[in-house]
Deep mutational scan, measured.
Amino acid sequence: GSPGIQSFLPPGWEMRIAPNGRPFFIDHNTKTTTWEDPRLK
């Protein structure tokens, strides 16, 4: 199987799917959430 997208996120980050189907990202380091992919910064 191919590695999940989770493995490509920075340490402490998690990806979830919102009720509307959009992915969002949780930064457990700062306890914040964002719509922006942290890998694109």
Rank of each mutant, 00 (worst) to 15 (best):
H28V: 06
H28G: 05
K31R: 13
N20Y: 03
G12R: 04
S7A: 14
P38M: 03
L9F: 07
G4K: 05
D37N: 03
D37F: 07
G1V: 12
E36I: 08
G21V: 00
P10Y: 06
P23K: 07
I26M: 06
G1W: 10
T34H: 08
S7C: 13
P19Y: 08
I26H: 05
P3M: 11
S7H: 14
P23G: 03
W35R: 03
G1D: 12
S2G: 11
F25Q: 00
G1Y: 10
I17H: 12
K31M: 13
K41H: 15
T34R: 02
R16V: 13
R16I: 12
S7D: 15
K31S: 11
P3T: 14
R22Q: 10
Q6W: 02
R16T: 08
E14H: 03
H28N: 10
H28Y: 09
E36T: 07
P23M: 07
F25R: 00
E14F: 03
L9Y: 03
E14K: 02
W13R: 00
P3L: 12
D37E: 05
I26Q: 02
I17E: 07
N29W: 08
K31W: 10
I26D: 00
P10S: 04
P19G: 09
M15G: 02
P38Q: 02
G4N: 13
R39C: 15
G1S: 11
P19F: 09
D27N: 09
G4Y: 07
T33A: 14
E36H: 09
F24A: 02
G12I: 01
Q6K: 05
P3E: 12
I17L: 12
P19L: 10
N29D: 06
Q6R: 02
D27F: 03
W13P: 00
P3W: 09
E14T: 09
K41Q: 15
T33K: 11
W35H: 06
P19V: 09
L40V: 12
P23N: 06
T34N: 02
T34L: 03
G1I: 12
H28Q: 06
G1T: 12
F24N: 02
K31L: 11
D27T: 00
F24T: 02
H28F: 09
L9N: 01
G21A: 02
P19I: 09
I5W: 13
W13E: 01
S7N: 14
F24L: 11
P10K: 07
H28T: 09
K31F: 09
G21N: 05
P23R: 06
G4E: 13
I17Q: 07
Q6F: 03
W13Y: 03
T32D: 04
I26E: 03
S2M: 13
T33Q: 13
G4I: 11
W35F: 12
T33C: 04
G1P: 13
N20I: 02
T33W: 14
D27R: 01
T33V: 14
G1K: 10
A18E: 06
I26W: 06
G21R: 03
I26P: 00
D27A: 01
R39V: 06
G1F: 11
G21M: 04
G12F: 05
K31I: 06
G1A: 14
K31P: 03
I17D: 04
Q6D: 15
I26F: 09
S7M: 10
T30L: 07
I26T: 04
I17W: 14
E14Q: 05
G1Q: 13
T32S: 08
P11T: 10
